[in-house]
Structures are given as structure tokens and as C-alpha cells.
Simulated scan of single mutants.
Amino acid sequence: MTDSTLWRDDDPEVFRGTILAAAERLGVQPLAVDKDYWVREGLRAITTAHPGEPPSFEDILPQVRADAPLLQD
């Protein structure tokens, strides 16, 4: 478990507030910031499990594309 995972799990209200603050500052929906966080965590998990190998987006992109309509106003 990483420090960021512990922080997210230990204080979900602060994590949610951080997502909301970032979304407001960036002028995007909170769902977009949340999705970016999870994509980053997915890439971190891939690179941790397979050190020295470039990350593969083949497993992640189909889900991101499927969820993209949710991010539109």
C-alpha cells in the first residue's frame, strides 16, 4: 500500500474535498479529476508490478473511452 492510498483511505472526507477543490480550480467536473486520479493509480500499479517495462495503455483505454461520455456536460 502506498502513502497516497493510505491517505485516501484514512481520510476520505479530505480526499473528497481535495478532488472538489482541484475540480473547481481547473474548471472541470469532479468526476474528471477523480478519473484522472484512478488512471494515475492504475498506471502506478502497472509500473510497480512490472518495473522496467513501459506501461501498457491497452487495458486502461477501453474503460476510459467508455466512461468519457459521463464527463461531458
Rank of each mutant, 00 (worst) to 15 (best):
D11C: 04
L20C: 01
Q29I: 12
L70C: 11
Q63N: 14
L26Y: 10
D10V: 02
V28Y: 03
L31G: 08
R44P: 00
E53T: 07
L71E: 12
R44T: 06
S56T: 04
D67S: 00
L70Y: 14
G27Q: 10
Q29T: 08
L6D: 12
A23M: 09
S56M: 05
V64D: 00
G42K: 01
D9M: 05
L70F: 06
G17I: 05
V14I: 05
E41C: 02
R65D: 15
I46P: 00
Q29H: 09
E24R: 12
I19E: 13
G42D: 03
L71Q: 09
A32Y: 04
A66D: 04
P62E: 07
D9S: 09
L20K: 07
R40A: 11
G17K: 09
D67R: 04
D3Q: 15
T18R: 08
M1Q: 08
M1H: 12
A66W: 12
E53R: 15
E24F: 14
A66G: 05
K35D: 02
D9H: 09
G52M: 03
F57G: 10
E41D: 10
E41G: 02
V14G: 10
E41P: 03
V33M: 12
E58R: 05
T47E: 04
D36R: 13
R16F: 01
P54A: 13
A23W: 10
D36Y: 06
E13S: 13
I19M: 04
S4V: 03
P69T: 03
G52K: 01
R40N: 06
S4K: 14
D9Y: 07
A68R: 05
I60H: 08
D67K: 08
A22M: 13
E41V: 00
S4E: 11
V33S: 15
A45Y: 14
V64F: 04
F15K: 02
P54M: 09
T48C: 00
D9A: 11
L20Q: 02
E13G: 08
L71M: 13
I19Q: 00
P12Y: 01
R40F: 07
V28M: 03
W7D: 06
L61K: 04
